[in-house]
């Protein structure tokens, strides 16, 4: 009885202090916004009074200055510095030439990392885009299509950490004979597999199980974008083809696919970029153990767990070089598409 009382008594103040803490923090945060906007308004008021030939330079300085300063400090300078650091040792006090790059391409453990990353890069975008395309074609004429689309698209709103936890629970495994609490193990058991493996530990299967999470997240994105592209095909084009006798798969392969080719490529590369940079899924589900490490997570581990700034920077540069052509291509395509519209 005293024990229960103690719990009740301690839960009260704790909860109360949690609310006080919340009030202070949110107050600070709103205060920061108010301060920021207040200072801005004051500067606007002061600078707005300037007339004559100072008015324009002053406007440019006040309005463009903050963005340029932040970009120089936050992106441009760090970009140069990371490249520079990649030629230095762990503590950045001795130049090591190309030794970090040599390490990245010759060490066995990093080989696994690069191979896994390549696997992610091929499997996740192709599966998500293929599935998304199939769904986009199939869902359109169904009743309650909005419901199906929303539910498939929903994982996109969830954090990758959340997605990782959701699926880690699906893959949860218990020893043989015990009741399973993970959905996948239970499915395996009810299909007659008496002792299913511990999914997360079984290599190389576990890599595919982690990739499945990325597919789960990205399929809805592919579906929504491709669905919009299919709707945008001009009616005359399909009508002409139909008059020429094209039906079914022929119509799909010779009309739909060429008309949405650009969008398919943009979706593929976009999912590739996300896949390359995402480290959350692997970090949440395996921590990079059991042969599942990928480049983005290894970069984080080298930089902030091993504190090897040189190697971490090297991996960041490799990641950058891998992403660069994809993003550049994507931006050009998106721009072209926007201009033709």
């Amino acid at each position: 009885m005293p024990a229960t009382l103690h719990v009740v008594a301690s839960a009260g103040p704790l909860a109360a202090s949690a609310w006080t803490d919340a009030g202070i923090k949110l107050g600070n945060s709103l205060g920061a916004i108010a301060g920021f906007l207040g200072i801005l308004l004051l500067i606007f008021f002061a600078a707005g009074r300037a007339t004559g030939r100072f008015a324009k330079p002053l406007a440019v300085l006040v309005m463009l200055g903050p963005a340029i300063l932040l970009l120089l400090v936050g992106l441009v300078a760090p970009l140069v510095r990371t490249v520079f650091l990649s030629f230095y040792n762990a503590d950045s006090d001795r130049s090591v030439g190309l030794r970090n790059y040599d390490w990245a391409f010759t060490t066995d453990s990093i080989h696994t990392v690069l191979l896994n990353t390549a696997l992610w890069l091929v499997v996740a975008p192709l599966t998500a885009t293929g599935l998304g395309l199939a769904l986009a074609l199939l869902v359109e004429r169904m009743r309650w299509q909005g419901l199906y689309k929303s539910l498939i698209f929903l994982p996109m709103a969830v954090s990758l950490v959340g997605a990782g936890i959701i699926w880690k629970f699906v893959y949860e495994s218990r020893g043989a004979g015990q009741p399973q609490i993970g959905l996948l193990s239970q499915l395996a058991v009810s299909l007659g597999w008496e002792d299913p493996p511990n999914w997360i530990l079984s290599q190389p299967l576990n890599n595919f199980l982690l990739i499945a999470v990325m597919v789960w997240v990205q399929t809805g994105f592919a579906m929504v974008v491709l669905s919009a592209a299919i709707k945008a095909i001009p009616d005359e084009v399909t009508e002409a083809a139909r008059l020429d006798g094209a039906r079914g798969m022929r119509l799909f392969w010779f009309i739909t696919v060429p008309m949405i080719r650009t969008t398919v490529v943009v979706v593929l590369t976009t999912v590739m970029i996300t896949t390359l940079k995402a480290f959350d899924i692997v970090r949440t589900m395996t921590g990079g153990n059991f042969g599942t490490q990928v480049l983005a997570n290894e970069m984080y581990a080298q930089s902030f767990t091993q504190f090897d700034v040189g190697r971490g920077s090297t991996l960041a540069v490799i990641l950058f070089l891998a992403v660069l052509p994809l993003v550049a291509y994507n931006i050009v395509q998106l721009r072209k598409e926007r201009e033709t519209r």
């Binding site: 599935l131 199939a134 769904l135 074609l137 199939l138 869902v139 359109e140 004429r141 169904m142 419901l147 199906y148 539910l151 498939i152 929903l154 994982p155 969830v158 959701i166 699926w167 629970f169 699906v170 959905l183 789960w216 399929t219 809805g220 299919i230 709707k231 095909i233 001009p234 009616d235 005359e236 084009v237 399909t238 009508e239 139909r242 039906r247 079914g248 798969m249 119509l251 799909f252 009309i255 739909t256």
Partner: peptide
């Protein structure tokens, strides 16, 4: 409508079943 023609050739009971199965699979974990 032209785009409808493309989609019509893909719809059918099997197609709808596929969409429903995927939707269920996508929702169950959450």
């Amino acid at each position: 409508k032209g785009s409808t023609a493309v989609r019509r050739s893909f719809s059918g009971p099997l197609g709808s079943l596929f969409v429903i199965v995927v939707t269920v699979l996508w929702t169950i974990p959450t």
